[in-house]
Design a protein around this nucleic acid. Structure first.
Length: 881
DNA sequence: TTCTCCCGCCAGACC
DNA sequence: GGTCTGGCGGGAGAA
């Protein structure tokens, strides 16, 4: 593959002179030349780094100028090439056969066996090299580049089974596509870049990076605790990766599977595994992924309960298979990560730099869980997105019935337009690039309309706000919908919030309006479209209405919510200086992504609610039925999972408490409202920014929060909107305090909130705790960072939020509720620790400051950290092999 | 001893 | 019923 190397997306130079047509059979010299191929490959910098190109070069032919000329001519003229190759093919075949016979005649027994290719020479990687050498990196489009598996297997003298392995991985990268039985089409690297971009995007949306970090964190924890297999298993379960949304094969438009037969057994397909594996690299920083972590993630997405040793080993085997092919493609390179436990095999991404910002490219997931096939979103590819070529295990089929599609489309459009006056425009800022770019023109049009209406009325809204600000800030008023939540956590409660708008600073989730049938209030939760069904199933009172936000996954939500600080810290922990920078960028990028959800007038809500209820419940029934075990398990597992996550929850609470301490109780609504007025409706750009800085609003009916973690992604913020009417004051308080306070810096203010008060908070932790993402919060081993928030992060945040130092607190039923700005350093003072925590990738984050900082926190909360504090720094090094 | 991963059984899907 | 696909894990070579 290095012949073209990583020519990059633009590098269309067809540097390969290989035949473009698979019909041009590779001379059967392969087996006879395997040694030479291997030698050639190994003689280079690394194993399997040199593409063989044997076919072009008849055995024995040196790379002479004449040869090159022939190759060039051949490449230029398919006809000539074909003629030449057919000729060469026949010649070489006969030569090989003769040589083989000769070999057998002259050698016998051990000698012959020794002459047989060694295990290494039969490796999948080498085989893949041979395979790739048959075809050009960039085949001429339009030419028929067919691959006949039988022929290839024969020519490469391997059983077809092996070819499947290669083809499956190549297929995952859209380098080949299946045409029919035993027949594939070769696309070369034409689609590679696009595929990688798509995969990266999907990986980001699925928060694979956080998952990786989470797993590592857990490993650290386990390492210094029980250090037992069981413990590890538990930890993995706890992580919730198993509950991470499943996703199946990601297709590119026009690259969908043509044969239904391929859609079977896809859930464990090498294709899907390969894509996920690649995603891990694309979202990691640095782009090094250990097999162990990859295996855990892959297993987690399948069945946690299956996480026994054999499963793990099997996964590792498969990963090796995939890695071999990817290595042949020169996309990854094997390295070793050395840590205290010893050397761990890992792979480093050596492929092209991939930008996740893909314009106009929308991944097509064969499973609705992957890309939010937001049924309510009139995307051009919606049908494709929601189509379920691959019923996942359990035979899930989430394809929405056409009639329902139409219905929800109508509802969505209706809702958008009508809610515009009081809703923040769903601005498609840079952060929404991914999504917006993929939005159909219709959506764009609707958004534009809403935006115009909004802007036109922004001034009016401001006026309204002034008049009603005080009332709106009154949380005690149960009837006020969408009103007060905003204050509870929003660093800059916006006018929009107070007016019932549900601002979402989460572009990648699928915000869902949950009008509560009984309370008449709406909740906004983020969940995966497919999960929405599940959620609905368990909470009939919920009506899930997807909002056009593409990305999604459970993990995402919580992560995103906390991404501002916690994750940045986290990332920082795992990375070096550069990583920190990258992460910052990452944060910035994330911050740019803003998705606002329009508030829905009650009438509309009810209406849509009714409609949706019908359709969704039906769908859910179906989904439940089809989901069968998974769903049941999800729910059942939720509790154990939540329990297991208790530590995390505690940490979160702890952080919250810490943060609460620093909040001023005497912050009043006026401040809040004033701030809102000040920041109410800035320009588009600023509006977006502000929104981004705001905590993601989220409200969940505590009693019905029985969603499987990872499926329901509650934005654990005491949110603003929401119709907490259904919440008891206590619950409200709990929810509010539940917010994963990311700023637990001891230097922040203190809010006299009693422990008991906080205790009540943990109810909804419920989902939060179950959410794998939240676990990614800088807790435990990384708890140190809670108080050592990377200064650059703080600075960055301070820049944006410097004006939001005043955080109002509210009183709910006599209990003070701290309003904790999520993305805002609630610290009036500057961080005393200026040193940036620059943890190395595989280094356990830790620091002397940890203890000190923790010491200022309540005892019970510290408990969680105690053990992690003892975790020694581990020195990990990555070494190429 | 652990890491790698080849090999081929076998079962589901397809024809 | 035959063939195609590909999940899976035993077990052996390599490190």
């Amino acid at each position: 593959m290095d012949r073209c190397g990583e020519a990059g997306p633009e590098g269309k130079e067809n540097c390969s002179s290989e035949p473009c047509k698979s019909t041009l059979k590779t001379p059967l010299k392969q087996s006879a030349t395997s040694h030479s191929v291997l030698a050639e490959i190994q003689s280079n910098s690394g194993p399997l780094t040199t593409p063989p190109k044997l076919k072009e070069i008849p055995l024995g032919d040196p790379w002479t100028p004449t040869t090159n000329l022939k190759i060039l001519i051949s490449a230029a003229s398919p006809e000539i090439r074909n003629r030449e190759q057919k000729k060469g093919l026949q010649d070489s075949r006969s030569e090989i056969l003769e040589a083989k016979h000769c070999l057998q005649e002259h050698l016998s027994g051990d000698e012959y066996e020794k002459s047989q290719p060694s295990r290494k020479e039969k490796s999948l990687g080498l085989l893949c090299h041979k395979f790739l050498a048959r075809y050009p990196n960039y085949p001429i489009i339009g030419e028929s580049n067919y691959i006949c598996l039988d022929e290839v297997a024969e020519e490469l003298t391997v059983e077809r089974r092996r070819i499947y392995d290669i083809v499956n991985v190549l297929e995952s990268l859209h380098m080949v596509s299946r045409l029919a039985k035993n027949r594939y089409a070769w696309h070369g690297r034409h689609n590679l870049n696009k595929t990688l971009q798509t995969l990266k995007k999907v990986g980001e949306e699925n928060k694979y990076m956080q998952l990786i970090q989470l797993i590592k964190k857990r490993e650290y924890e386990n390492e210094f605790e029980l250090d037992g297999e069981k413990n590890e298993e538990t930890a993995t379960k706890t992580i919730g990766i198993n509950e991470h949304s499943e996703m199946c094969f990601i297709e590119l438009p026009g690259m969908e599977f043509r044969a239904a037969s391929v859609n079977s057994r896809k859930d464990k397909s090498l294709r899907v595994m390969s894509q996920k594996f690649v995603m891990l690299f694309l979202v990691s920083t640095p782009q090094i992924v250990s097999l162990e972590v990859a295996a855990k993630i892959l297993i987690g997405e399948d069945h946690v309960e299956d996480l026994d040793k054999s499963k793990f080993k099997t996964k590792i085997r498969r990963l090796y298979d995939i890695a071999n092919v990817l290595s042949s493609l020169e996309l990854i390179k094997k390295v070793h990560v050395t840590e205290e436990r010893g050397r761990k095999p890992a792979f480093k991404w050596t492929g092209p730099e991939v930008l996740s910002d893909i314009q106009g490219t929308k991944p097509i997931s064969t499973v609705s869980t992957f890309v939010p096939s937001n049924s309510l979103e009139p995307k051009p590819s919606k049908e494709q997105c929601s189509k379920n070529l691959f019923p996942t295990r359990g035979k899930q089929i989430f394809t929405r019935h056409p009639s329902l599609m139409k219905l929800v489309k109508s509802i969505e459009s209706d809702r958008r337009i009508h809610s515009a006056p009081t809703s923040p425009v769903k601005t498609s800022t840079t952060g929404c690039d991914q999504n917006s770019s993929t939005f159909p023109s219709k959506m764009a049009h609707l958004a534009a309309i809403c935006k115009q209406q909004l802007e036109g009325q922004s001034s009016e809204l401001k006026m309204k706000t002034k008049l009603t600000s005080n009332l709106e800030c009154n949380l005690a008023a149960p009837e006020s919908i969408l009103k007060s939540e905003t204050y509870t956590t929003s660093p800059s409660p916006s006018l929009v919030h107070s007016l019932g708008v549900l601002p979402l600073s989460h572009n990648s989730m699928s915000p869902v309006m949950l009008p509560h049938p009984h309370a008449g209030v709406s909740y906004t939760i983020y969940l995966h479209p497919s999960q929405a069904q599940t959620a609905t199933t368990y909470s009939p009172s919920f009506v899930l209405q997807s909002v056009p936000c593409t990305n999604v996954t459970g993990v995402k939500t919580a992560l995103e919510v906390n991404s501002k600080v916690p994750f940045s810290k986290m990332t920082t922990e795992e990375g070096d200086g550069n990583v920190v920078k990258d992460d910052t960028n990452f944060l910035n990028a994330k911050e740019k992504k803003v998705t606002k959800i329009e508030s829905t007038p009650r009438s509309l809500l009810k209406r849509s609610q009714a409609l949706q209820e019908n359709s969704l419940i039906k769908k859910c029934k179906h989904g439940q039925k089809s989901l069968g075990v998974p769903m049941g398990k999800s729910v059942k597992n939720e509790r154990p999972s939540s329990r297991a996550l208790h530590v995390d929850t505690e940490v979160i609470s702890f952080q919250e408490r810490g943060q609460i301490k620093f909040e001023k109780l005497d912050q009043n609504m006026e401040c809040c409202c004033d701030k809102e007025r000040r920041e109410g409706f800035p320009e588009d750009g600023s509006k977006t920014n502000n929104t981004q800085e705001r905590p993601v609003p989220f409200a969940v009916h505590a009693h019905e929060a029985l969603f499987p973690s990872g499926y329901l992604i509650p934005i654990a913020r005491c949110t603003q909107h929401s119709n907490e009417t259904t919440f008891s004051n206590k619950e409200k308080a709990g929810i509010c305090s539940l917010q994963p306070a990311t700023y637990s810096s001891p230097i922040t203010g203190v809010i006299p909130v009693t422990a008991s008060e906080l205790t009540a908070v943990n109810i909804p932790a419920f989902h939060v705790s179950g959410n794998p993402v939240l676990q990614s919060l800088p807790i435990s081993p990384k708890a140190e960072h809670v108080n050592t928030v990377s200064e650059n992060v703080n600075l960055q945040q301070r820049k944006v939020l410097k004006n939001e130092s005043q955080i109002p607190d509210y009183e709910l039923n006599g209990k003070s509720v701290a309003v904790i700005p999520l993305q805002q350093p609630s610290v009036p003072a500057k961080p005393k620790e200026s040193q940036v925590v620059t943890e190395n990738f595989f280094r356990t984050p830790g620091g002397p400051n940890t203890i000190a900082s923790l010491s200022s926190f309540p005892e019970n909360s510290d408990r969680v950290f105690q053990k992690t504090l003892t975790i020694p720094q581990r020195k990990l090094e990555v070494s190429d092999d």
